[in-house]
């Protein structure tokens, strides 16, 4: 049975951090890691986990996935200074190439950190939305997705 699928690119400069949100049950390919999040019998979300923004010709199909995706995720270390970090670099390269909206997933409950991120020029200029994920949460991915859907759907309607 063919499922209904949404494809979502996920960027992260730190693989271990991405694993904390998405788990480690993925399939590994040369340019990305793939993970299916099963919602029900008819629906799944396909995540493409990447450490870099696609740049070379053999990654071009990922370009198309990003263009067609409802949004992208970037998993961020709550204490990093994104201006100077590899995460900031991913972010800059992404918005030089793509218009697809992006959410930062920050593994923390600290609301103050959310404000700090929102005040970052890189975040404000590119209209990036911040989603805080409870590191001790039961189904982190579910809560992150719910918030992403909530934020993206009203914007469009």
């Amino acid at each position: 049975m063919i499922k209904n699928v949404i494809e979502v690119p996920v960027f992260s400069a730190n693989t271990a951090l991405a694993d904390a949100v998405f788990g480690d049950k993925y399939s590994e390919y040369p340019q990305f890691r793939f993970l299916e999040y099963h919602i029900d019998d008819e629906r799944s979300i396909f995540f493409y986990l990447l450490n870099n923004v696609p740049q070379v010709a053999d990654e071009l199909f990922l370009d198309q996935i990003i263009q067609m995706a409802p949004f992208s995720f970037l998993v961020v270390d709550p204490l990093e200074e994104i201006r100077q970090s590899a995460t900031g670099e991913i972010c800059r390269m992404y918005f030089e190439q793509f218009e697809t909206p992006m959410f930062f997933i920050v593994l923390t409950n600290d609301e103050e950190l959310k404000n700090n991120f929102e005040n970052e020029p890189l975040v404000a200029e590119n209209n990036i939305k911040i989603i805080l994920a409870d590191p001790e949460g039961k189904d982190i991915l579910k809560s992150v997705l719910k918030e992403a859907f909530n934020q993206i759907i009203p914007q469009a309607q």
Binding site: N4, I6, I39, R43, I45, D63, I66, Q67, M68, A69, P70, E96, Q97, F98, E99, T100, P101, K146, F149, N150, I152, I153, A156, Q157
Partner: peptide
């Protein structure tokens, strides 16, 4: 810059 091509928000609503 590559355009944002997603537009089917009803489809997304079903997922939500």
């Amino acid at each position: 810059k590559k355009k944002y091509l997603f537009s089917d928000y009803d489809y997304l609503m079903q997922f939500a």
